[in-house]
């Protein structure tokens, strides 16, 4: 019925067949059983994210945004379709291997900051690396490097309750970025931050994408979705449309 203008420039996916695919979802479904009733949280969702791309997912409450993010991150399992992250089909991975993939390759940023209050900022950032068996000295060095990269190197020795909301979120992002993670999953990372601080957070995620990570952002705020290369609209568990920025970022 409606003639939509095709996007003026083809997306990265169409343009470069030798692209560096980080996430591939093919016909992914997620059904929850509620008593006798089957609830379709996601229906036949297909989505590809290449290295260097920032994708935003928008949609009303209950449209499946967080389910989509959790499935990509291996926190939830698809009930149909195929989920491949960094070349690994998630449904074929044993729980320990899935946990290892999550720890090493995937960084999460949530709305609830969940920094550990009894650890300093730098110790919070070191934690995932230490859990991964990296020596304390090396983990500390890596953590300080990431904190520096996002402009809060001087806050490393502070405890979470000595930081502002924006600073805490930066530390949480540093923790999501530390190590060699090429997939960043962010669920409403701007939470209750004011718009200028929220823009700073998006600037960080954007820089990480421009440096080669794949970033999947769930947000209900249009202004933050505006930072994405592609905005995917979800309705009732299905992708109904997507908006691609007119120009492809030079990488």
């Amino acid at each position: 019925m409606i003639d939509r203008d095709p996007s003026p420039v083809p997306s990265v996916v169409e343009e470069d067949p030798g692209r560096d695919l980080v996430v591939e979802l093919a016909d992914v479904g997620r059904v929850h059983q509620e008593g006798a009733q089957a609830v379709h949280a996601l229906k036949e969702v297909s989505l590809e994210i290449v290295a260097g791309e920032l994708i935003a997912v928008m949609g009303p409450s209950g449209s499946g945004k967080s389910t989509l993010l959790n499935i990509v991150g291996g926190l939830d399992r698809a009930t149909s379709g195929r989920v491949v992250v960094e070349g690994e089909p998630l449904d074929l991975l044993s729980p320990p291997r899935l946990a290892a993939l999550r720890r090493r390759r995937v960084g999460y940023v949530f709305q609830d900051l969940n920094l550990i209050p009894s650890l300093t900022a730098v110790e919070n950032v070191m934690l995932p690396r230490e859990l991964d068996g990296v020596r304390t000295g090396k983990a500390r060095k890596e953590a300080l490097a990431v904190l520096g990269e996002i402009g809060v190197a001087d806050l490393g020795d502070r405890f979470p309750d000595e930081l502002s909301g924006g600073q805490r979120q930066r530390v949480a992002i540093a923790r999501a970025l530390v190590g060699e993670r090429r997939l960043i999953l962010a669920d409403e990372p701007t939470g209750a931050l004011d718009t200028a601080t929220g823009d700073d957070i998006l600037r960080l995620l954007r820089a990480r994408a421009d440096a080669g990570a794949a970033v999947l952002l769930v947000t209900h705020e249009p202004r933050y979705a505006g930072w994405a290369d592609r905005v995917v609209f979800l309705r009732d568990g299905q992708i109904v449309d997507s908006a691609t920025a007119g120009l492809v970022t030079a990488r």
Binding site: V231, A243, T244
Partner: peptide, 10 residues
């Protein structure tokens, strides 16, 4: 919505 989002991205 798609058209306005594209404007916002630009």
């Amino acid at each position: 919505r798609t058209a306005t989002m594209r404007t916002l991205q630009e």
